[in-house]
Design a protein around this nucleic acid. Sequence first.
DNA 1: GTTTCATGTAACTTAATTAGTTACGATAAA
DNA 2: TTTATCGTAACTAATTAAGTTACATGAAAC
Lengths: 149, 149
Amino acid sequence: MKRNSRLSSILHILVHIAEKPEQALTSEQLATFVHTNPVVVRRTIAGLRDAGIVTSSRGHGGGWQLGRAPKDISLAEISAALGETLLPFSTEPESPGCLVEQAVIAVLDDFRIAAERLLAEKLSHITLADLTADFRRRYDLIGVSSHAV
Amino acid sequence: MKRNSRLSSILHILVHIAEKPEQALTSEQLATFVHTNPVVVRRTIAGLRDAGIVTSSRGHGGGWQLGRAPKDISLAEISAALGETLLPFSTEPESPGCLVEQAVIAVLDDFRIAAERLLAEKLSHITLADLTADFRRRYDLIGVSSHAV
DNA sequence: GTTTCATGTAACTTAATTAGTTACGATAAA
DNA sequence: TTTATCGTAACTAATTAAGTTACATGAAAC
C-alpha cells in the first residue's frame, strides 16, 4: 500500500467485503487485494470498526464484515473514521507573536473549515452501495472475476 | 519549516514582501521569518517566480519582490504555483484488472475533480491584498512590530 | 481440552519523502 | 575588484508511514 492511498485502499477493501456479505473475509485475504500485509490492514481498518462501519470476529472462521448495509455507509463517515483530514496543510503557528503569520493562519483556517464542510457534504452523498453498483456495472459488462492480479 | 506548512509559510513570506514594496527582501531575511534557511526559501519560492507572482534579482541589493499588485495575486494561483494538489489522496491503480479497484478509482476521481474545482474557485476569491489588510487590521489594533520571535 | 485459525497490538526495521546543508558558479551593484 | 545575492546540484539528516516479527487473546472444530 503506497503512501496517500489509504482512502482508496480502504474503499477497495470495503467493496470486496460488501460483495461477500455471507462470509467473513480475513485480514490476509484483504491484504492481498491491496498488496500489503495483514497487520497493516488490521491497523488501518481498526478505526472503521470503532465507527461501526465494519465488525471483526476472532478465531476459526473469523474475519471482517460490514457493520451495516452499504447504502448506510457514506464516504464521509469512512473518511472521518480514517482520522485524516482531506486537506492536510498545516496552520500551526511557528512564530507566535508575528502578526503576519496570525493573519495568514486566520484566513487559511477560515478557508479550511469552509472547505472541509463542503467536502464532507459532497462525500456524505456517496455510499458504499454506489461503489458496489459501479463495480457490478463493470462486472456485467466485462464478466470476468472480481479480482485479477 | 515543518512538513505540510508550505502554503502557510509561503503566504507568510509573501505578505512580508508585500509589506516592503520599495525594497527587495533577501532569501536570508525571508528564511528567518519562517525559521528555515535561504536555500529552502529559494527552492520553494522558485515556482512562484515562474508563475510571475514574484521576481528575483541578483547581486548587491538584490532579493525578492512581488511580480504584480497584491490584489491581483490570488491564493488559487499561489497554490497552483506550488505544484501541489490540496487533496493529496492517491488514485493510482495498484491492481490493474481488478474491477473493484476500477470502480473505486472512477468514483474517487470524479469526486476529486469536482472538489478541486470547488476549492480553486473559493481560493480564487482570496487575494494577497486580503491578507495584508487582515495583517494591518491586527497591526493597528495592537501596534507592535511586524515580526516578533 | 487441545488444536487450529483468527484478530489485537506492541515493538522493531525498512523505505520514502522532504527539509536542511554545503559548495560553488553566475550576476550585479558598490 | 570586491561584496552581496540568487541558482542549483549534491549530499545529509530528520521524519513519517509502511512493513515485519512476535506473541497474547479469543473462538470454533475436532
